[in-house]
Design a protein around this nucleic acid. Structure first.
Length: 266
DNA sequence: ATGACCTGTACGACAGGA
C-alpha cells in the first residue's frame, strides 16, 4: 500500500495538478491539508472519477483537511479527542483533523496550527493542540499496542536544526522553538515514529519551501511534513520519498508530497 | 536548471501562511 500526505495550499486553485499527481503516483491513500474550502466547495466528483473516495472536513476558506482513498474509507471522524483545543474569540474548533480507516490503517490527516509568533495566542493554541494529539495517540496505543495508526500531515514543526536551511534565520520564530520540538518528540516517544527519515536523510532534506526569495531553487526549505507511524505500522514501511519534483513549475504548492510504501499486512 | 509569493474574499486591500 502506498500512503501519501500533502499540504496542497488550496485544492481548488491547483485541482489539475493534484489530480495529475495522484493519477501518476500510484498512491492508495492521500491525506491532504490546507484544502481552503468548505465541504460543499470540495471538488469531490473529480476524485471519484479517478477511482478514489473522499472524506473532507472544511468549515471556511482557512485550513481544511481531507482523506482520499481507493482502498476503503470507513469510520470517518473529524476530531481525535473530545477536547481538541479551540481558538479565537469566540472560541471555535477549526478544521485541522480528519481520520478514517483505509485499507486497515487508521489514517489521520492533520494540519497543526502555525503558531504565528512566540508571543501570539496562536502559539499557545499550537502547543495545546499538539499535546492533545499526543494524549489521544498514546491512548490509542495503550488500548491496542498493535494498532495500525498513521499520524500524517503538516506538523508546522522542524524537529531538529537539520530540518531548516538556516537555524539563525529562524531564531526567535515558531517551528523551531524548544517547546514545539519537545511536543513533537513526545509524540514520537508515545510510539509514533518518523518513518520517512530513514529513507530521506538530512541535512538539506525538506518538504516545504517558501514561495518568496527563490527559496526552492536555492534549496532553502524546512522539513515540517511527516508520516508518523505506530509500531505495527512502522514495521511495514519498506520505503519513503519526498517528491520535490512536484514543487517545481508554475502552480505548485509550497509543500511537496511525502509518500510511504507499506508491505502487505502480515 | 528548480527561478524572483500565493490564496480566498471580494473588487481593494487584507488575513493567513512559515
Amino acid at each position: 500500500m502506498r500512503l501519501a500526505t500533502w499540504n496542497v495550499n488550496s485544492v481548488r486553485a491547483r485541482l489539475d495538478r493534484v489530480l495529475a499527481w495522484i493519477d501518476r503516483s500510484d498512491v492508495d491513500v492521500v491525506a491532504l491539508q490546507e484544502t481552503k474550502c468548505k465541504d460543499e466547495q470540495f471538488p469531490e466528483q473529480a476524485f471519484l472519477d479517478l477511482g478514489y473516495e473522499v472524506a473532507h472536513h472544511g468549515l471556511s476558506q482557512w485550513n481544511g483537511v481531507a482523506l482520499v482513498s481507493r482502498v476503503g474509507l470507513e469510520d470517518v471522524s473529524t476530531r481525535f479527542s473530545t477536547d481538541v483545543p479551540q481558538f479565537g474569540e469566540p472560541a471555535v474548533t477549526e478544521a485541522r483533523a480528519i481520520g478514517a480507516t483505509c485499507g486497515g490503517v487508521r489514517v489521520w490527516s492533520l494540519y497543526v496550527p502555525n503558531g504565528r509568533g512566540l508571543e501570539d495566542p496562536h502559539y499557545v493554541y499550537k502547543l495545546a493542540w499538539l499535546q492533545a494529539l499526543r494524549s489521544a495517540g498514546a491512548g490509542w496505543l495503550a488500548q491496542d499496542p498493535q494498532a495500525q495508526v498513521a499520524l500524517v500531515g503538516d506538523f508546522n514543526v522542524a524537529p531538529t536544526d537539520d530540518d531548516v536551511w538556516d537555524v539563525d534565520f529562524f531564531a526567535g520564530a515558531t517551528h523551531v522553538s524548544e517547546p514545539e520540538r519537545a511536543e513533537f518528540r513526545s509524540l514520537v516517544d508515545a510510539g509514533f515514529a518518523d518513518v520517512v527519515r530513514p529513507y530521506a536523510p538530512g541535512p538539506g532534506t525538506y518538504t516545504y519551501w517558501d514561495y518568496t526569495q527563490l527559496r526552492f531553487p536555492k534549496r532553502q526549505g524546512m522539513r515540517i511534513d511527516f508520516v508518523l507511524g505506530s509500531p505495527a505500522l512502522a514495521g511495514r514501511v519498506t520505503g519513503a520519498t519526498i517528491d520535490r519534483e512536484e514543487r517545481k513549475g508554475k502552480g505548485a504548492s509550497d509543500h511537496a508530497p511525502v509518500v510511504v510504501e507499506l508491505a502487505p499486512n502480515a
